[in-house]
Simulated assay, not measured.
Amino acid sequence: MATKEQYQPDTSEFETRERAFEKNIQVTRMAESVRLALMVVALLAGLTIVGTSANTLSVYDKTHVSTDFLLPLSGVWPSEFDLRPTIALVTCGTIIAITSAIALIASKASSIRYNPLIHSTVSCIASAICLIAGLVGTSFYYGVNRSDTVFSLQAWTCQFSHVPMTQAPHWGALCKESKAALYLTVMIIPLEVLVLGFSAYVSSAEKKQLVIRERKGSPAMS
């Protein structure tokens, strides 16, 4: 008498989907790690921009005196001086640092981290703010620095960077600090574009993973 064959469920397709799902999770985690690393770089860059720009302003304030006073340092700075580019770098650097710090903290908060919509919104808004700050700081700096009649801090200090100074202001150091702040602000632009790209990818992947998890947990899929 022939025995009835027992039904053997085909698990190969299920296992393939599971492996693909796990691989997708791993790739998403890697992308999220890269995004967080880039945000840390943006935070450090923002702090450096603020530190270097603020220091150049501090040196200027300490060594600048009116030409009405017959003092040794009265002639080291021009009578007409435009501090707006440096002030713009301090402002934009502060915005970048604070926004990056808030975004990093938000990424670690469970109430935000495990909500794809809120998480992606916070990440994209933070990156957009930093990107705009970088664009504004860079464009403002180069726009004002084109003037042939009024000097900026970088233009003046770099003009005399080869002149040795035994006391403040040390032109070479101030020139390097001004350039470092400017170059880091320029670097923020492509950096935040990358962060936006990774944020968009992570957001899309997390939403898909959430849908798959919900389907797995639904009675219809059990």
Rank of each mutant, 00 (worst) to 15 (best):
Q6I: 11
Y7I: 09
Y7H: 04
Y7G: 00
Y7P: 00
Q8F: 10
Q8T: 05
P9D: 10
D10A: 06
D10R: 04
D10I: 01
T11I: 15
T11M: 15
S12W: 05
T16H: 06
T16R: 11
R17G: 08
R17S: 05
R17C: 03
E18H: 06
R19E: 08
A20G: 04
F21L: 14
F21Y: 13
E22R: 14
E22W: 10
E22I: 14
N24C: 07
T28A: 15
M30W: 09
A31Q: 10
A31D: 03
E32D: 09
S33T: 11
S33Q: 11
S33C: 01
V34K: 05
R35W: 01
R35L: 00
L36C: 02
L38C: 15
L38V: 04
V40W: 14
A42Q: 05
A42T: 01
A42S: 13
L43W: 09
L44P: 00
L44R: 02
L44F: 08
G46L: 12
G46F: 09
L47K: 09
I49R: 03
I49E: 02
I49S: 00
I49C: 04
V50Q: 03
V50Y: 07
G51E: 04
G51K: 13
T52V: 11
A54F: 01
A54M: 03
A54V: 00
N55S: 11
T56M: 15
T56K: 03
V59D: 09
Y60M: 15
Y60N: 14
D61A: 12
D61F: 09
T63C: 07
T67N: 06
T67P: 00
D68A: 12
F69D: 14
F69T: 14
L70A: 15
L71G: 04
L71F: 03
L71Y: 01
P72L: 15
P72R: 15
G75D: 13
G75N: 13
W77E: 04
P78C: 11
S79K: 12
S79E: 13
F81K: 06
L83R: 05
L83V: 04
L83Y: 02
R84W: 09
P85S: 11
I87K: 12
L89W: 01
V90M: 05
C92G: 02
G93L: 06
T94E: 01
A97S: 07
A97P: 00
I98M: 07
T99M: 01
T99W: 02
S100A: 12
S100C: 03
S100H: 02
A101R: 01
A101Y: 02
A103C: 11
L104A: 03
I105K: 11
I105E: 02
A106S: 12
S107H: 11
K108V: 14
S110K: 13
R113E: 07
Y114P: 00
Y114Q: 10
N115D: 15
P116E: 10
L117Q: 05
L117Y: 07
L117A: 10
I118C: 11
I118V: 15
S120I: 02
T121C: 08
T121F: 05
T121G: 02
V122L: 02
S123F: 02
S123C: 03
C124T: 14
I125C: 15
I125T: 15
I125F: 07
A126S: 14
A128P: 03
A128M: 12
C130A: 12
C130S: 06
C130H: 04
L131N: 01
G134K: 10
G134P: 03
L135F: 05
L135P: 00
